Measured scan of single mutants.
Amino acid sequence: VPQRAWTVEQLRSEQLPKKDIIKFLQEHGSDSFLAEHKLLGNIKNVAKTANKDHLVTAYNHLFETKRFK
């Protein structure tokens, strides 16, 4: 089981690129989880459509539901 890579403050910070969060989610989330949160596909394309709040919610949801690969 992966550990949380970032704190809530870090997740919301401008310093953390959306692409980093997407990469983490794609590496650790199950396909059904990723599909549900519309996070499947090319990281660049996902970054265009997903806002930061959406990614933070998905990140927290992944750990709450433990839907890891």
Results as ranks from 00 to 15, higher is better:
21 I>A: 01
60 N>S: 08
10 Q>D: 15
50 A>K: 12
9 E>M: 04
67 R>N: 12
29 G>P: 00
36 E>K: 06
7 T>H: 04
52 K>L: 07
54 H>Y: 08
56 V>H: 03
23 K>T: 10
40 L>M: 12
29 G>D: 00
18 K>W: 03
22 I>T: 02
37 H>Y: 14
6 W>A: 03
5 A>P: 15
3 Q>M: 11
32 S>E: 15
22 I>Y: 03
43 I>R: 08
63 F>M: 03
13 S>A: 05
2 P>Y: 04
38 K>G: 12
66 K>M: 14
55 L>K: 01
21 I>W: 01
52 K>R: 15
14 E>S: 13
51 N>K: 09
64 E>Y: 13
26 Q>T: 05
10 Q>P: 02
17 P>L: 12
10 Q>V: 06
30 S>I: 05
66 K>Y: 07
64 E>T: 09
53 D>P: 07
15 Q>P: 05
65 T>A: 12
2 P>N: 04
23 K>A: 12
2 P>R: 04
51 N>H: 11
20 D>H: 09
41 G>C: 05
26 Q>Y: 06
18 K>P: 08
18 K>D: 07
45 N>E: 13
19 K>M: 13
19 K>N: 12
27 E>S: 08
12 R>G: 07
58 A>S: 07
6 W>G: 03
24 F>E: 04
32 S>L: 08
16 L>M: 07
41 G>Y: 03
55 L>G: 00
14 E>M: 08
34 L>K: 04
52 K>D: 03
63 F>S: 01
65 T>W: 11
67 R>T: 07
65 T>M: 13
33 F>I: 02
60 N>F: 11
44 K>H: 15
4 R>Y: 07
69 K>A: 10
5 A>S: 10
65 T>P: 02
20 D>N: 09
39 L>A: 02
7 T>K: 03
42 N>W: 10
28 H>S: 08
36 E>V: 08
4 R>G: 08
49 T>M: 14
25 L>E: 00
20 D>W: 05
3 Q>I: 13
3 Q>W: 04
47 A>G: 08
52 K>Q: 05
64 E>N: 07
9 E>R: 02
11 L>C: 03
16 L>I: 14
24 F>D: 01
20 D>Q: 08
46 V>D: 03
30 S>D: 11
24 F>A: 05
68 F>C: 03
47 A>M: 10
15 Q>E: 13
26 Q>P: 00
57 T>G: 10
20 D>R: 13
41 G>K: 06
30 S>N: 11
6 W>D: 04
57 T>W: 15
10 Q>Y: 05
68 F>G: 02
10 Q>M: 10
36 E>I: 08
61 H>S: 15
43 I>Y: 10
54 H>E: 11
48 K>H: 13
34 L>F: 01
55 L>H: 01
12 R>A: 13
50 A>H: 12
55 L>D: 00
47 A>N: 11
24 F>S: 02
28 H>G: 02
60 N>R: 07
14 E>L: 06
68 F>W: 06
17 P>S: 09
54 H>A: 13
2 P>H: 05
6 W>L: 03
25 L>Q: 00
31 D>L: 13
58 A>P: 01
34 L>V: 04
27 E>M: 10
20 D>T: 14
67 R>E: 14
11 L>D: 01
5 A>T: 12
55 L>S: 01
32 S>T: 12
8 V>M: 09
16 L>Y: 05
56 V>P: 00
10 Q>G: 04
38 K>T: 07
39 L>M: 07
22 I>H: 01
57 T>K: 09
50 A>Q: 09
13 S>W: 03
6 W>H: 05
57 T>I: 14
47 A>I: 14
7 T>W: 04
61 H>N: 15
62 L>M: 08
24 F>I: 02
38 K>Y: 10
66 K>V: 05
31 D>W: 15
20 D>S: 09
35 A>T: 10
32 S>C: 12
28 H>C: 08
21 I>N: 00
18 K>A: 13
3 Q>T: 12
23 K>V: 09
47 A>C: 11
67 R>K: 09
44 K>W: 12
12 R>V: 12
49 T>S: 08
12 R>Q: 14
44 K>A: 15
63 F>E: 01
42 N>Q: 12
8 V>R: 02
54 H>D: 15
28 H>R: 05
58 A>G: 02
55 L>F: 07
64 E>M: 09
40 L>V: 12
18 K>F: 05
66 K>D: 06
42 N>S: 12
34 L>Y: 00
64 E>A: 08
12 R>T: 09
58 A>D: 01
64 E>V: 09
29 G>C: 05
21 I>S: 01
54 H>N: 12
2 P>V: 08
21 I>G: 00
27 E>Y: 04
17 P>T: 11
34 L>I: 07
50 A>E: 06
27 E>W: 04
36 E>M: 10
54 H>V: 10
64 E>D: 13
29 G>E: 00
44 K>F: 12
21 I>K: 00
56 V>T: 07
13 S>L: 02
57 T>C: 12
15 Q>L: 11
18 K>Q: 06
65 T>S: 13
65 T>L: 06
12 R>L: 15
56 V>L: 04
48 K>L: 15
23 K>G: 10
59 Y>R: 01
8 V>N: 15
53 D>G: 07
57 T>P: 03
38 K>F: 11
65 T>F: 14
44 K>Q: 13
41 G>P: 05
43 I>H: 08
6 W>Y: 05
50 A>D: 03
2 P>M: 05
41 G>F: 03
53 D>I: 06
59 Y>K: 01
22 I>W: 03
60 N>W: 06
21 I>C: 02
46 V>A: 05
63 F>D: 01
51 N>Y: 08
41 G>D: 05
2 P>K: 03
39 L>S: 00
38 K>E: 11
15 Q>F: 11
28 H>E: 05
43 I>C: 08
21 I>V: 06
35 A>S: 10
46 V>W: 04
24 F>N: 01
5 A>W: 12
56 V>C: 06
54 H>M: 14
3 Q>Y: 06
43 I>W: 12
16 L>E: 01
4 R>P: 14
48 K>P: 05
19 K>I: 14
12 R>Y: 15
18 K>H: 07
13 S>P: 02
10 Q>N: 05
57 T>Y: 15
1 V>G: 10
33 F>S: 00
17 P>V: 10
17 P>K: 14
58 A>E: 01
63 F>T: 02
52 K>I: 05
15 Q>G: 11
60 N>D: 11
15 Q>K: 14
58 A>K: 02
13 S>G: 05
53 D>F: 07
67 R>M: 11
6 W>I: 03
8 V>K: 06
37 H>P: 00
62 L>E: 00
60 N>L: 15
59 Y>L: 03
57 T>S: 11
25 L>V: 02
33 F>E: 00
30 S>K: 05
48 K>Y: 13
10 Q>C: 08
24 F>K: 01
48 K>W: 09
1 V>H: 13
46 V>I: 12
24 F>L: 02
17 P>A: 10
68 F>A: 02
27 E>D: 12
23 K>F: 07
55 L>Q: 00
67 R>W: 06
13 S>C: 05
8 V>W: 06
64 E>P: 01
3 Q>H: 14
65 T>V: 05
16 L>D: 01
65 T>Y: 15
5 A>E: 15
49 T>A: 09
53 D>T: 08
6 W>R: 01
62 L>T: 00
60 N>P: 01
27 E>N: 10
68 F>R: 01
64 E>H: 07
49 T>D: 11
47 A>Y: 08
36 E>T: 06
